[in-house]
């Protein structure tokens, strides 16, 4: 855990294009294909009581990519994310780190709710992952400060969660996820409960952080517009049991700014993704 700080991701954004490692029926031209970070092999999940949530998921997530999992409510997106995180064991198939390791401690997770400890200040909430791995508070202080600054919460280190707005709480949650400098950042519909204005702002801030930090991101959403704006790869899922219906590359250059939302290219990409989603819904 302590050596995560030293971890360096490959600069994938500028890496040469190579064929997609795991082509799928609708797979687009790979824009940011890169060294795989984690691979799911025929992953399925059946819950106790016989509910099939996922079926035959083959997915390779490239290092440094921004992957969006898009699908209707209840299609098993969150289940898939939990399996990637290692919080849930798949019923069939396997999850493998490309480097053969366990990936322990190298994952950041952001839930749909801010999921903060109400009894702890902003700084202490962000400190939690480091505290659990035995980093002393004093040693962690500069990193906590940096994380607070990175999500734009300067001056709120001593505030308690109840004193913050919904958007600010989400920022704390993101800062907590990035304090360990994770290889892999998993976000489970993190902005779904926020108002539109706050959501757009957080989208842009998240993209900026991603470009600075070069994490690998898997972002679960049910919004076509959000997934196209953020991701360089959108994986469309079918309703329960969730299968991968389409795997689309989003061919829009980074950095992506507010102005992108009104361009024709953005509109075209959104239409393509919408059509894939509609097709996925029709299959079921």
């Amino acid at each position: 855990m302590r050596d995560i700080a030293e971890f360096q991701t490959v600069d994938i954004l500028h890496a040469a294009s190579s064929p997609h490692p795991n082509p799928l029926p609708h797979a687009g031209e790979g824009t940011a294909a890169s060294a795989p970070l984690i691979t799911l092999d025929g992953v399925g999940k059946v819950f106790r009581g016989g509910v099939a949530a996922l079926d035959g998921i083959d997915l390779t997530i490239g290092s440094g990519t921004f992957v969006s999992l898009l699908g209707p409510s209840g299609c098993g997106k969150s289940t898939l994310l939990r399996i990637i995180a290692g919080l849930l064991a798949p019923s069939t198939g396997a999850r493998r780190w490309a480097d053969g390791g366990t990936g322990h401690g190298s994952i950041g997770f952001v839930f749909q709710e801010p999921t903060l400890m109400p009894w702890a200040s902003v700084a202490d909430n962000i400190y939690l992952p480091l505290r659990l791995s035995g980093v002393a508070r004093r040693a962690a202080a500069p990193r906590i400060e940096a994380a607070i600054a990175a999500v734009g919460l300067d001056g709120f280190a001593g505030a308690y969660p109840r004193e913050l707005s919904g958007g600010m709480k989400m920022r704390v949650s993101i800062a907590r996820a990035l304090i360990t400098r994770p290889h892999l950042l998993l976000l489970d519909e993190p902005f779904a409960a926020l108002d539109e204005i706050t959501r757009l702002k957080l989208n842009e801030d998240l993209l900026r952080l991603w470009q600075n930090e070069k994490w690998t991101v898997v972002f679960v959403t049910h919004s076509v517009f959000e997934s196209v704006f953020l991701a360089d790869r959108v994986v469309v899922m079918t309703p329960r049991p969730g299968r991968i219906a389409a795997d689309l590359a989003i061919d829009l250059p980074y950095p992506r700014e507010t102005a992108l939302r009104t361009t024709a290219e953005y509109g075209l990409q959104c239409r393509a993704v919408s059509q894939s989603l509609a097709a996925a819904m029709a299959v079921a």
Partner: peptide, 20 residues
């Protein structure tokens, strides 16, 4: 969810008890 987060970061039972 907080309990899952504790698990994700490899918290011991003792840590989960005291801190959560």
């Amino acid at each position: 969810n907080l309990a899952e987060l504790f698990r994700l970061y490899g918290a011991s039972r003792w840590q989960a008890l005291w801190q959560l």
